[in-house]
């Protein structure tokens, strides 16, 4: 469309209905501002006037949608809605504290549930997980929730418990309700990682102790220096890579270690049969390349790094 034509269209439209469009826009702005400062009654008045002035306009449809939200709660519940709108706009510590204090005085229902949810979620974000957990427990004790609301509430409780240092309690909340899902997977993976890190350190320490005193304990007596370094390499390299790339290091470590083993055994066999220095170097270089390839594929598979493509 050319500029002059667009200009004409704008001018014609503005001339045709100069009052209605401007009035609707002004009332829409006023209504929005009233909602932001937590005054549903003033917002309702603006939206009603907007609809009366221009019932078939675009903004009238939007005003009707706001009225569906604002007009349903009445009395004390509308007061709760005002406080909720205000706290959503500015979820600061002070305002959340004030909203939490007022909650018990509000009637039970959708607005209070949403307010409880906001309060609990904000306490978690503000670094007070115990307070958040208590808030989520009170939310879950309210009736009338949809299944999804309850599921989200339990997830919030589980996150709060985990943040408060009770991951076992968090997992119990999800398991008892049958909410598997990503959160439970994450918590389970974190537990595996904790156990795994401890286990890896223990195995490594044991190996080093046996190596250091192998003449005394005679356990690793037959182990050559080359064999020992191969075994150490098999353990240390995957452990280093896994720790560097993946927070849930145990699975990655196990996968790396098992898939590196054939590469290293192959390299060792090559080394034994190599006839000269050149062949040994070729074997070593090949083994390193193969292990890098293995590590790359494992990390992609585990999602620790992005693979080729997207």
């Amino acid at each position: 469309m050319t500029r002059w034509f667009a200009g004409v269209v704008v001018a014609v439209t503005l001339l045709a209905a100069p009052g209605a469009a401007q009035d609707s826009a002004r009332r829409w702005r006023e209504g929005r501002a009233a909602e932001r400062r937590g005054d549903p009654a003033a917002a309702i008045a603006e939206y009603r006037a907007l609809i009366d002035g221009d019932p078939t306009g675009r903004l009238a449809t939007r005003a009707r949608r706001r009225l569906e939200v604002l007009e349903e709660p009445v009395g004390r519940e509308r007061e709760a809605l005002g406080a909720l709108l205000e706290a959503r706009q500015d979820p600061s510590r002070e305002r959340i504290q004030a909203l939490e204090g007022a909650l018990e005085g509000y009637p039970a229902g959708e607005v209070r549930r949403e307010a409880r949810n906001l309060v609990a979620s904000r306490w978690l974000a503000l670094g007070e997980p115990e307070r958040a957990a208590a808030g989520y427990r009170r939310l879950l004790a309210e009736g009338g929730m949809t299944d999804l609301q309850a599921e989200r509430g339990r997830a919030g409780l589980a996150r709060s418990l985990a943040a408060a240092g009770d991951p076992a309690g968090a997992m119990r909340v999800l398991e008892e309700a049958g909410d598997g899902g990503a959160l439970l997977d994450t918590l389970a993976a974190e537990r595996r990682a904790r156990v795994g890190r401890g286990l890896s350190v223990a195995v490594l320490a044991l190996f080093l102790v046996l190596l250091a005193w192998r003449t005394r304990f005679r356990v690793l007596d037959g182990l050559t220096r080359r064999g020992a370094s191969l075994a150490a390499w098999t353990l240390l390299v995957p452990l280093a890579i896994a720790t560097a790339y993946d927070a849930e290091a145990l699975d990655t470590f196990a996968l790396l270690a098992t898939s590196s083993a054939p590469v290293l055994l192959g390299a060792a066999a090559w080394g034994r049969h190599a006839r000269n220095r050149r062949e040994r170097w070729l074997g070593a270089a090949t083994a390193v390349a193969a292990q890098v390839a293995v590590a790359y594929l494992v990390l992609v598979e585990r999602g620790a790094i992005l693979g080729v493509g997207w």
Binding site: P262, V263, G266, W270, A289, A293, E301, G303, G309
Partner: peptide
């Protein structure tokens, strides 16, 4: 030849490419 075998062995341990994409 052995290198190819090793890489194929490593590659055959895995399916797919990229976790979620």
């Amino acid at each position: 030849m052995r290198r190819v075998t090793l890489l194929l062995l490593a590659a055959s341990l895995f399916t797919g490419c990229g976790d979620d994409d």
